[in-house]
Amino acid sequence: MINVQHISKSYKEIQAVSDISFEVKKGEIFGLIGPDGAGKTTLMRILMTLLIQDEGQATMGGFDVIKDYKKIRKMVGYMPGRFSLYQDLTVEENLNFFATVFQTTVEENYELIKDIYIQIEPFKKRLAGKLSGGMKQKLALSCALIHKPEILVLDEPTTGVDAVSRKEFWDMLKKLQAKGITILVSTPYMDEANLCNRVALMQKGKVLNIDTPQKLVENYTRKLYAIRANDMHQLIQDIRAYEKTDYAYAFGQYLHVTGNEDDVEATEFESYLIQKNHTKLEVFDIHPTIEDVFMDRMGEQ
C-alpha cells in the first residue's frame, strides 16, 4: 500500500532523511519509532505530497508521490503533529469543512468516525481552540477520516498525551485497522512499538532496523540483567565503574545492565555489588524491551 525506495531529503547541509526504504502492506499498522530529529515528519510530509524528496521514489496506493499527488491527496487522511484544525470554528464546523473540501458529507461517512466522534459530540458547538488536548486529538482524527481514506498517516498523535489517553487512542487505531485502513504512525514512545504490526526504528534520518516488534526483541541476543538495590543512585555509579559492565541504564525501578562480554554471569555482578556493600540486592536476567533494542542499536552507530 505504501512503497518507499531509497528516499533522501536534506535541508541545506542537514540530512533529514537518508536513503530510507520500506513497504507497508494493506491493512497493516506500521510504526516509525524514534526521537525528535529522526526524520519521521520529513518522511511523512514526502509521502503526503507536501514535500519533494531529493532522491528516491515513493508510492501511496500505487500512485507516485510526485506525479500523482492529486490522486494521493484524495485517498489519504493525515493528522499532522501540530494541531492544525481551525481554532475559531466549532467542532461541528471543522468536521463539515473537511467533508466539504473532499466533496462528501459527514452523514455519508459517519459510520467510520462514529465511535470516535460520539465522544466529542456533546461539545460540537464548542470552538476547536477551547477543547482539551484529548478532545482536540479526537476531532483531528475524525477530520482526517471523514473522506474515508484508504491510508491514514498520523504524525506523533500521542506526544504529550497522558498514559490513559494514549491507550484509548491506540484502541481507536486498532478498530480502524479492523475496518481495513492501512495506518502509518510515528511515535517517540518506544513502548508503543508493540502495538504496531511492524516498525522501523529511526535515528538521525536513518533506519536502524525494520521488523515486527516480536522479531526485534528476539533478535537481541545479548544477555541482559535487571538489577536493583536499596540505594539505586549509588548502584548505578558502582555498576558503571565495574570493568565487566558494558552499559547500565535506569529502567523504572530496575537498572538494565549488559556485560562487556556475553558470558558475564549474574553471580559476577552480584558478588561485585555485595562487595560494594549494597543491600536488598536483586540480580536476574530478563527479556529485552523495544527500548533496550533501540538503545543497543544506537550504541552501535
Binding site: 506526544t159 541504564y249 527500548e291 533501540f294 550504541g299
Partner: peptide
Amino acid sequence: DEPTGGVDPITRRKFW
C-alpha cells in the same frame, strides 16, 4: 515541565 519529551532513550536517561 515535561523536560524529556521527544528526546531519544539514551539522552532521556542522561538528563536524569
